[in-house]
Design a binder for these strands. Sequence first.
RNA 1: UGGGGUGUCGUCAAGCGGUAAGACACAGGCCUUUGGAGCCUGCAUUCGGAGGUUCGAAUCCUCCCACCCCAGCCA
Length: 562
Amino acid sequence: MSSEMLPVTDFIREIIDKDIKNNRYGGRVATRFPPEPNGYLHIGHAKSVCLNFGIAMQYRGTCNLRLDDTDPAGESMEYVESIINDVHWLGFDWEDRLYYASNYFEKLYEFAVRLIKKGKAYVCDLSTDEIKEYRGTLTSPGKESPYRNRSVEENLDLFARMRAGEFEDGSRVLRAKIDMSSPNITMRDPVIYRIKREPHYRTGKTWVIYPMYDFAHCLSDAIEHITHSICTLEFENNRPLYDWIVNELIEEGDRPRQIEFARLNLSYTILSKRRLIELVEKGYVTGWDDPRMPTIAGMRRRGYTPEAIRTFCNRIGVAKKDNLVDIALLEACVRDDLNEHAPRVMAVLKPLKLVIDNYPDGKVEEIECANHPQNPAMGTRKVPLSKILYIEQDDFHEYPPKKYKRLAPGRKVRLRNAYVIKFADMVRDDKTGKILEVHCTYEPESKDSLKSDKRNVEGVIHWVSAEHAIPAEVRLYDRLFQVPDPAGMDDDFSKYLNPKSLEILTLCFVEPCLQKAAQGSRYQFERLGYFCVDLKDSSPLKPVFNRIVSLRDTWAKGASHS
RNA sequence: UGGGGUGUCGUCAAGCGGUAAGACACAGGCCUUUGGAGCCUGCAUUCGGAGGUUCGAAUCCUCCCACCCCAGCCA
């Protein structure tokens, strides 16, 4: 039923199958999810989380959570906490295997010393610009640094003094001695340690030198006995370096293997950390957890469920092709999950007063309504009905368009869960001509209609009793961008922001049971969509609902029916 | 002009020499006290292109084309 249940196959699992068959790593499978704590996790990370933890679960292996914190600039505990929170929320657990690359700084230093002793690394005094110049270009080879052939002893001494803080930032680096003429620029004596007097959020001022990604990552994998180090495509160029370092320093049989897959791109949004930061800092959104953001925090606040996100990640598959996944697929996963689990309630977003002329004054009926028409196990609730109701402005038209199945002069409709009503009259504002209220009569015997009792009913509309309804604020969220691929546009992506990505409705009415709805709880507002009680701004005094996603609507799709 | 990758329906994606899965989207229909949900039907004679091998090719070979990544002391 759920796509999560389907057996998952992809090229990575095929590689793992093969490794197991060949008894590589003794049949062991160990993965890791290694974010750098310098930003919030987004749906693209979720793909990686589901992949790494999913594989571990499937093969009865392990998946570590490792904070890849080798560059103190921009990293912080706030991000670590958000990452921990988000991965847990997604439904994954690393037990006691929460690791930090920064915990390995001493070991990594020792590895570097070993590399120097093997004559495979040297301290280079070239400036940043000089290193760049010596590196050559894509099409021309680089040239060797004049410091390349320093003695092991001198290198050892210099490296120790780098650590001791004797040199200025940027004055020296440690480089791997590989091949300055390699067609792969990554292999042209890559920098593996730099001097940086930036306090680290975990190690403080203990270190003034920090290992580079290429050096730290593969060795961190090895330290943790990772078998399959899964990363995104842009690291494919780095794999020869990964293998080189691991071959130099790690025993055969314990060397992790890097496998690359295509990162997720999602239509109508952006997923690059840099641009996400820009959205937040320039105030285009209210924060990392703005419900329009593709961050885990944003989607959580929007009301997306972890189940839906996991299903999505499984449905998109894993491959090496650049992709732009239709956000409609994500929305479909959200609808699938919510359709099954969200209780139904009635809410009127843009109210229009409706009076039932022949309904007794002061009478209140408690109508028993199913919480889920297809699932009786979800029970029922009582909803008050009285003479004066609110209905949706869109559900009445003085001059109904073709195929309109709602209320109009001369027509009958059914009030959802209740009576059939017939149009009687309408009250108009003399000045504007706007309809202020609609009058109807009801058919007292029509509540529990039999099938034969359809009697020319045009359709079904939802309602709420004016006297009993709870005022609420509803925030209608829509796609953040107007174009399918904002990141692919060559000019400023902010030009393509959707001005209607948020519409705030402050005069809505919801049925009484929602008064005490808990923050984060999700409902289907019948005929409208799925809504979530806002995690931050909602309170019993002033309920606030976020639209998670609208209902699939074949009527609305048929262009404008004005 | 170097190197590394990738090209199968509008979008993802199976396929691993035996005659193009599935999902989303889209279009019809049935059903319905949510224009929801559910159900049914349709939707690539063709796999970036051109040659070749083969009884047989999306799958093997050759050449070509397009797109992505790499010249941070970021990850």
